[in-house]
Design a protein around this nucleic acid. Sequence first.
DNA 1: ACCTTGTTCAAAAACGTTTCCGGCAATGCC
DNA 2: GGCATTGCCGGAAACGTTTTTGAACAAGGT
Lengths: 341, 341
Amino acid sequence: MTNIKDVAKYLGISVSTVSRALNHYPDVSPTTKTQVMDAVQYLNYRPNAVAKGLIQKKTFTIGFMIPDITDPFFPALANAVEETLSVHGYQVVYGSTNRESEKEKQFIANAISRQFDGLIITPDVLDDEMIALISGLQMPVVFLRRRTPQGLNAPYIDVDHYHAASAAIRHLVTRGHQRIGFISLPVNSITGSERLRGYMDTMSAYGLMPEPVSIVEGGRTIDHGRAAMEKLNQRCPNLTAVFAANDLLAIGAMEWLHMHHIAVPDQISVMGFDNLEYASFQWIQLTTMEQPREEMGRKSALTLLKMMKDPKQSPVSELVEAKLIERKSILNLNAVPAGRS
Amino acid sequence: MTNIKDVAKYLGISVSTVSRALNHYPDVSPTTKTQVMDAVQYLNYRPNAVAKGLIQKKTFTIGFMIPDITDPFFPALANAVEETLSVHGYQVVYGSTNRESEKEKQFIANAISRQFDGLIITPDVLDDEMIALISGLQMPVVFLRRRTPQGLNAPYIDVDHYHAASAAIRHLVTRGHQRIGFISLPVNSITGSERLRGYMDTMSAYGLMPEPVSIVEGGRTIDHGRAAMEKLNQRCPNLTAVFAANDLLAIGAMEWLHMHHIAVPDQISVMGFDNLEYASFQWIQLTTMEQPREEMGRKSALTLLKMMKDPKQSPVSELVEAKLIERKSILNLNAVPAGRS
DNA sequence: ACCTTGTTCAAAAACGTTTCCGGCAATGCC
DNA sequence: GGCATTGCCGGAAACGTTTTTGAACAAGGT
């Protein structure tokens, strides 16, 4: 590999002049500058970013930690993050941690030793050790799709899961639904507990205090959704609607209903959360709360950029709006003859 | 940030001893070694991987270039690659290029200046400039999900698209289908042209030379599949089966059929390619050729690992088998009363 | 007493850049 | 013509490691 010394020697000038020419410093004459550029071309010289990073204490790489790239929620996020960071010369290093605490810590440790310039993270487990690790970080951090935990003061970009769940329930109730089941995410996760809380509070605000049996903890996958729907159907056979805490659960539920010849929405309505591509399939047509993933990804990248440019200012968190996407999985009971069990 | 000089000063020993202790060199006494370890803990010292990379000429990062992380085909690949590389201490840098030539070149250039140790790439456009760029590379490269282009001698990991397409057609023909339409990927892509070739050759081997009108170039998305199915239906209303070159196209086709009340498989059979998660949905149940994505990801990572360990040996390419996943989207005409148009 | 061998460590070079500092012409100004 | 200013450039330090070389010392054999 040819280095800067080689091109300096080739031109018979000093290393520092070559460096200044390449970095467009003002104090280098136009003629030598073009000479340098030509020599660089001719010798096929590529600056070594590692050496540059060492001396500048800036690597132009940022870390992006997510629970699971295989979860269809994340690729769009990742894409938006990379898109907006790459135009500023940053490269992003993904880490898919499978929600394992060990891997998450591993990723942070790596970010430190590799001198990343910033971090966008969606941590899943936030025990004390993790919080300590993050709070000891020298680089800017933004939390994505979860609020900043107690004890840290990084900004976050999140949707308001609580209000979104509330809006979903409102949508169902105003369409005449009263017996509404809930298929939950793991409740030890933040998003899971927030959406559950939105369901609970809104139901009781309408005087529809749900019995505990109408809530089942589902998990995150389609299979979980199926199993949860089966359990729900056993325990509360007279539900008119089901609210699933994400689209995968909703689709699992719809699959179970389809297999048992229970028509959606005629016999039971289903509401989802996320608006994945699946949701718009002709067979599914799921009404769901959309999380604006591109927007979230973009905004997290932009606030990180701002923080890296000026580490002084305290950056601002943002709560973006979820949006109700109406399709055909919910029946309006008020517009129906009546006489349903 | 505390560096190795700090811990040396703290212990009153030399920098080199600390370094040797940390890297488990034999010539450091047990007592100083434990002292060093304790000091490292106490001072919260983290080795600077950038400096290490500079002197060792090894960064323990590999680049993984894919066309589009948003395409549901790739996350599983990416996951497998990262999984098997991370256990060897490598970190992987993704690049989602949106199939833009400019971004692909950008990624390679970045890989050079950042001194990556190796590359796993799924390039989409391979013009002369790209080939020159790659052939000038100092680091090992493996091609994934495409064969190595002429003029390069890197290994590849791919499925045999041609034979897989051939097997798909054989499956249809042995079930009595003769008029089989084809929805193609963009034919200027390698995978697209290979699958098309498999279709063509196999059809004519059975004496079923397809008319040009029964082939329509679809694209890559569900919307393309819909449009293609509509076109196909106009041009060849008497098809008994359609082979779509990937599952997204197949699902788009099935959507169009569903919207027009044409039953699958009773009125027309559909065969896909990829076996995405979608394909197993209850409403879809698509028979399709599975590409073993985890296996491909793992294998590409393993051969890269081998090449990095011993750059001498010429590594071996692999063609993995696609596997027919039988579901319910194909009707066996031989087991049916007869009398179909 | 001397050589050999082995163990443990320190000094310094090296990696490829950037950047600070100073020097040397040439120019402009009085 | 002296003097400050400007434009351009070279030397060298610095970034934080690893690695090579060899020094110091002890122990053991003859």
